[in-house]
């Protein structure tokens, strides 16, 4: 059971949150200018790493804020919490 530090509300149990999947996925556009391949890539292809994963989470049962996590997908250790729109931080 993950303990996630919401940037606004502090550490809370995972049941208060919803994971929105990989973050930093760039939405291509405008629609007419996007190739089928580029669109498929955006829609479906995911890094899905075994290890550090940058992902976005919503504090759904709290402040309703979206934020980013850097989390290890094997140990589930959370290495960083950072706001939407910020670049992925470097961690040791």
């Amino acid at each position: 059971m993950l303990l996630i530090s919401c940037p606004h509300c502090g550490p809370r149990d995972e049941i208060e949150f919803r994971c929105g999947g990989e973050t930093h996925v760039v939405r291509p556009g405008p629609a007419e200018a996007v190739s089928e391949d580029a669109w498929a890539d955006y829609l479906f292809m995911r890094q899905n790493p075994r290890g550090l994963h940058a992902e976005r989470w919503l504090h759904a049962a709290g402040c309703r804020t979206w934020f980013n996590l850097l989390r290890d997908t094997v140990t589930h250790e959370i290495k960083a919490v950072y706001p939407m729109g910020h670049a992925r931080p470097e961690v040791a």
Binding site: R18, G20, R64, W66, M84
Partner: peptide
């Protein structure tokens, strides 16, 4: 409601 906020916060801040 969540859907609207996701777009506002994550894509069109």
């Amino acid at each position: 409601a969540e859907w609207l906020e996701e777009w506002l916060q994550c894509e069109w801040a």
